[in-house]
Amino acid sequence: MIWLISCLTLTVACLFYVFHLPERLFPGSPNMRAGYLRERKDAVYENLRDLNFEYKAGKLPDIDYMSLKSSLQDEAATLLAEIARAENSSKRGSRNTRL
């Protein structure tokens, strides 16, 4: 009999926890494209920092450093332009929705 009561209590406690929700739930974050581009931008900036540090540590000759730095900077510029485009289009999208 005791185990039956224990099982019942356990079930009620579980159901209460699962289905008794707070009034406000945490919302997710939208705009995956811009988020993804920002991630890439952070990675490129980190790569630039790494490169800079390795150059200062004497691991790279000047010519390698200049060429790698310039290609990373080009990549960062492309990403920044794309981020601006993605953010503009999402702003336009939300304005259209409001209209």
Binding site: Y45, L48, R49, D50, N52, F53, K69, Q73
Partner: peptide
């Protein structure tokens, strides 16, 4: 300074 980093500038950090 990193926050105002222009596109073609290099991030000024001494560690990686």
């Amino acid at each position: 300074r990193a926050r105002f980093l222009p596109v073609h500038a290099e991030p000024v950090v001494t560690g990686d």
